[in-house]
Structure formats: C-alpha cells, structure tokens
C-alpha cells in the first residue's frame, strides 16, 4: 500500500492540487454566475425569470458526465466553425472545457440556493434600507447580498463538497485530477489498492473542507 503511495507521490500530489484548484475555481466562478440567475428567479416575473428557470432546469437535468462529453467532444466536431468565430482557443483546451461544464452545472444549483435565501430575507430589512435612503444597488450590495450569503453558507458549503466529488469526472476528458491519476496508476499497476488510496485522499480533503466551513460559518453566524 505504502509503495503505491510513496512511489507515485508526485502524481498523487499533482492530482490533489488539480482537484482542489478546479473545484474551488468552479464554485467561486459559479457563485458569481449564479447571482444574476438567482435575482432573475427571485424578482423577475417576466422573460428574464423564465430564462433563468429554463437555465436551472436544463443544467440540473443533464448529468455532468454527459455535459462534459458534450462540451468537449461536441465542440471538437465544430472546430472549424469555432476557429472562424475565434473561440477555438477556449474549446481547444480540456481544462477550460471541463471548467465550463463544472461552472454551468454548479451555477444552476447555486442559483436555487441563493434564490432560496434571498426569498427568506424579511421585508422589514428592505423597508429599513428604504428608510435609510439607500439606493437599490447599494442596498443589494451592502445589505442583501451579505445576509443572503450568510444564510446560504451551509448549503453552499455542501455544494463545494459536491464539486470536489464532481471534478472526478474531469478524467474522462484528459484532465488528470485525483481520480484521473488514480485511474492512470490503476491501469499500470492493476492494483485495486490504488483506489483505496484515492478514497483516503477524498475523505481527508472533504473532512478538511467541512472543518473549515464550520469555523467560517461560526464567524458569520450573527448575520444569518
């Protein structure tokens, strides 16, 4: 067991770093992508609200594995057209394609989480803001957003952990995260213990993130 870990240490570390970076990036970018969608879902009854609902339903409906294949190999089929549009530099890169799939997926889930917490902010907060003569933008940015974020933190934390697990699918489009490295070492050593080492990595990573989130939650609990 130890030789499978120490003998391949640099590959395990590369995989671990890639998993951590890709999941963190996708959650953070996904959060900012989710904000306008959540606002549209929460406040707009018109076409914007409808579009936001459509976005959420589509990207929560497609399995991430299929979405990754679709974006990566699907775009490859149109490489000539994408070159013409000047977009090929983006789709050419497996990392960008993988990140795009992760962000599209998590933004749909995060939008629903943020919408849920926006909807629970009582009207008295809004009235207070109006009484203080805050503009709608200031009131959103300085008051509503921080409160919504604090309220949404536990489910957003869960989403972060789900994203750590979701990055394991990057391996199918040639991005070697923890799972990808594990599958590579497995295909060379034919040793099942490789997957137990990968499992230990994920367990430690997830428990660490949970611990960090709990501390962070405790600090901003007063706002929620």
């Amino acid at each position: 067991m130890f030789d499978l870990y120490f003998g391949e240490m640099s590959r395990w570390n590369d995989g671990l770093i890639l998993t951590a970076v890709m999941s963190t990036l996708s959650v953070v970018i996904g959060f900012f992508a989710a904000l306008p969608i959540a606002l549209a879902r929460s406040k707009s009854k018109g076409i914007l609200g409808f579009l936001a609902l459509g976005y959420v339903n589509i990207f929560r409906g497609v399995p991430l594995l299929v979405l990754m294949f679709l974006i990566y190999y699907g775009s490859g089929q149109f490489s000539r057209e994408l070159r013409g549009l000047g977009l090929w530099w983006f789709f050419r890169d497996a990392y960008y394609c993988g990140l795009l799939a992760l962000v599209l997926n998590t933004a749909a889930y995060q939008a629903e989480i943020i919408r849920g917490s926006l909807d629970t902010i009582s009207t008295s907060v809004l009235e207070t803001n109006a009484a203080l003569n805050l503009t709608r933008w200031t009131s959103f940015r300085r008051v509503l957003l921080p409160i919504a974020f604090a309220k949404a933190l536990p489910p957003l934390g869960n989403e972060y952990i789900l994203m750590v697990k979701a990055t394991s699918l990057l391996a199918i489009i040639t991005v070697f995260d923890l799972m990808g490295q594990a599958r590579m070492i497995f295909s060379e050593t034919f040793d099942l213990r490789v997957y137990y080492i990968a499992a230990a990595h994920y367990l430690v990573l997830v428990l660490l993130i949970e611990w960090g989130l709990r501390r962070f939650e405790a600090r901003i609990k007063w706002m929620a």
Partner: peptide, 11 residues
Amino acid sequence: GEALMDLESGR
C-alpha cells in the same frame, strides 16, 4: 477513439 476524435478536431 477519443484520441482520434481529438486528432481530427486539431486539439
């Protein structure tokens, strides 16, 4: 087959 698809698309 996936490697060949990526070759065809020029990746």
